[in-house]
Amino acid sequence: MRSSRWLHVPLWVTYAFLYVPIIVLVVMSFNSGRSAYSYEGFSFKWYAELAEDELVRDGLINTLIVATSSTVLATVLGTMLAVGLARYTRSKTLDAIALMPAVLPDLVLAIGLLVFYGVIQLTLGLYSVVLAHALFSMAFVAAVVRTRLVNADTSLEEASRDLGAGPVATFMRITLPQLAPGILAGALLAFTLSLDEFVIAFFTIGNSDQTLPIVIYSMIRFGVTPKINALAAILLLVSFTAVIAGQRMTKIGEARAQD
């Protein structure tokens, strides 16, 4: 094709749009000046300041606590829900309700929970965020596990039941091992979603402990410094590495499956 070189222009526009802001962000994190806007010279000083920032450190710890706990809760509940929905009922209503937390805008979930916690006079804290995150994560886990269930071979389960095994025994010995990759994928998704979640946490976290996204948000509100850029650069590095590693792993997994 003659014009193929020009054809790719939209592609480059998109990638430039997506990556220029990120590159700028990272470059400015090495600024030696106080301003996040004008570059004065190279320095690691904002990284050093970041390392000493207790708010950021506590935020990171809190985020990990919330993400881990909500993932465990969501994985257990979501897997059971997926099995229940796929094997034991045909109700479309239940299907829809189970998917609702994933579909509803986060703001709606957030105010619903805020109102609910207020009415039962719950003291807000990390655990109220854990409950909230598990709510939408459960929907994602259930959805991921279900796609796996639909493709799974049911004859083994039937055989197990015919041999007199109860639903729980059948689940533990037959279904669960078959589902393991789906459950793992769902759990990973839940964990990543919780790590980054801002809106719901913002409404339901209360006053004492804050998660990292909330810490970042207040840092930006209370004045923009290259310290935020340094934090951003580190987070970018972590998530890029994780995504690329995940990509590699699935590739290797696929290659093995094809062998």
Partner: peptide, 24 residues
């Protein structure tokens, strides 16, 4: 002593009244 921040009075009021025990 543990410090948490609010950027306006209104947000402080919400913090202090939205849930059972504000812990403040």
């Amino acid at each position: 002593l543990k410090i948490s921040l609010h950027d306006t009075n209104e947000i402080a009021m919400t913090k202090l009244t939205a849930s059972g025990d504000s812990k403040i």
